[in-house]
Each structure stands twice: as structure tokens, then as C-alpha cells.
Design a protein around this nucleic acid. Structure first.
Lengths: 157, 157
DNA sequence: CTACGTGCAAAGTGTTTGCAGCTCC
DNA sequence: GGAGCTGCAAACACTTTGCACGTAG
């Protein structure tokens, strides 16, 4: 529903304003871009492209600054899926990312899978882990069935 | 012992030669740099500095190429500890890195801690994880005891 | 009105690449 | 003596920054 998206965008713009920020067209377009692709892991490049389809004049740096403002607000977070650019998504879609080093496929795993190990590391090492910020590299089901891996690096074709 | 290090260097240079590569001074210095700091996570910058203390003329690109050659050989691997440069270390020192997002401290955890979750992800998602390539971000014991944000960044003394 | 946001371009960081010359085996 | 390595500098990909102008509130 487009109306629901728009409502959500307005709500986030409201948060920005309550924090002393301004609700601008560039920010509206950035938030919309993120909301419209809830299951995707958007790179800055992706977001810039989407923003420009609505607001062609928006500069790259503006999008980066909008994303930074949204991260400050706690609305957005970024994750490193590999050697390339960071990817951004709305918080509340929190999950761990498993990235296949061979084909680039991203498998999402709910945080709950990691509850056990998190507790163990906390007890054993005093370390409170935040699994979401970096992806876990590995090999997906399909690539495992194929031949053994040449290296830990790879990109989708 | 220096002799043991030198022996190890020669052995790796031997592997390079068996693979059709050449044993050069730059490569010798690169391997030595990695061997001399077995418990450190050396960035490319660190390695370049160490290499130049032995061979001042060596170019950055040569070190990167030496590291790449060593990774191809399986002797070296690199890990992403954060947003900055990659860090390199010899293989066989394999372990998972927990990086404190506040003070930068790196806690090392043996791979065995992750055996359970690795098996579960393999069974549930068909995904074979390679935990070593990215660090896990979090908060260390000391920073947890403190308040949320000390903001001063740097290595612990 | 004025603090905050923007567009633009330039700088910054970390890494890779093209190329002519050198050197290891 | 030739494949392989090197130094140099320029290119690269991604992101940040400085500055003058613009605009939301």
C-alpha cells in the first residue's frame, strides 16, 4: 500500500523534526527508497539511483548525509556485506546476514539463532556482541554442491 | 629465536618458488614482518612500515602484491576488523575476532566456540560459514561496565 | 530570519593497475 | 634470457568535507 508507506515516511520525517532537523525533499526521497525495498540490502549507489528517480537533482553527498542523520536517529543502520560498499536498511528488520563468497547470495538469519552463542561469549569473554554490523562470509547451499572453493572472494555474475 | 623465524621465512619462500614464484627481498621482508608480530593484527600500513625498516625502497603496491601472492598460496589471510583497512596474518593462527566498537580492543576467540552455531546454520540454511573473514562487533567487558559512550578512541595501553 | 540542509567539486582513504625496467632462477 | 617482480604514478571505488547559497520552520 502506497498510503502506508507515505504514512511511515511522514512519521520518520516527524522524528527528524522533533530532533531539530528539517524535513526536506531529499530526505523524504531517501526514506521512501529504503521503505520501498524492505527486503533488499541497498547500497548507497542503489539508494542514490532511487532517490534521483524522484528528485533528479539530489547530490550523492546529500544522500550520505541523510543516511547519517537517519542512523543518528536510530531509524537506519548500515551493514558491511563484503568488500564493496556498505548496505543500508531500516532498523527493526534486524537479522544476521550470511553472504556467499562465491555467488554473492545473501541469506538472512533471525538474530534468535545467535542467542546461544551471544550468551556464551558474554559469560566466557565479557563481550557483548552486535552481530548485525558485519556479515558472515561463507558458502551457500548451491555453491557447496558445486566444486570446492578457489578463494574466499567472489562476486555475482 | 631469530633462527626459527628465518627458517620459517625460508620455508615460505620455498613454497613460493615451488609455485613458480620468485623469492625476492620484498617478499622476504613482508613474510618477516608478519612472522615478527604473530599476535598482532597488522594493517597494510603497519606491514609497509615494517617492510621499509628492512628494505626502504619497497613500494606500497609491492607489499599489496606480495600479500596477495601469499594469500593465493594459503599462507596469509586478511580480516576486516572495522571500517578501516584490512588486517593480515599468517594462517594457522585462525580465530574469530571480537572487536570492541568503543575502545577498539580485539578479543580473540577460538573457532571451536562457534562449532555449534556453524553446525546449526549448516543444517538449517545449507550455509557453511567462514567466521574468520569479518570481525564481530560489540562491546568489551570494560566498556560495558562503563557508561554508553566514552567517545575517545584508540588502543588500550 | 537564521540554523540547518543542499549542490558541487575537491579531497581523503585504502587499494589496484599500467607500464617500462630489473632480477631471479 | 625470459617469466616474474618491481617502483612509480595514476586510477580506482567509496565516502567525507568545505563552502556559498538556499530553504524549512
Amino acid at each position: 500500500m502506497v498510503d502506508a508507506t507515505e504514512e511511515r515516511v511522514s512519521s520518520i520525517l516527524g522524528q527528524i523534526r522533533s530532533n531539530g532537523g528539517r524535513a526536506t525533499a531529499a530526505r523524504r526521497a531517501t526514506i521512501t527508497a529504503l521503505l520501498e525495498a524492505p527486503r533488499n540490502h541497498l547500497s548507497s549507489e542503489d539508494i542514490i539511483r532511487k532517490v534521483r528517480s524522484q528528485q533528479p537533482e539530489v547530490a550523492e553527498s546529500t544522500v550520505y548525509r541523510a543516511l547519517a542523520a537517519l542512523e543518528d536517529l536510530g531509524v537506519v543502520e548500515h551493514v558491511h556485506l563484503g568488500h564493496g560498499p556498505s548496505t543500508y536498511h531500516l532498523t527493526g528488520q534486524a537479522h544476521q546476514h550470511l553472504v556467499c563468497g562465491l555467488c554473492g547470495k545473501v541469506v538472512e538469519v533471525p538474530d534468535s539463532e545467535f542467542a546461544g552463542i551471544a550468551e556464551r561469549l558474554s559469560a566466557g569473554y565479557g563481550f557483548e556482541i552486535d552481530l548485525r554490523h558485519f556479515a558472515i562470509l561463507g558458502r551457500c547451499h548451491q555453491c557447496r554442491s558445486r566444486r570446492p572453493a578457489p578463494s574466499t572472494e567472489g562476486a555475482p555474475g
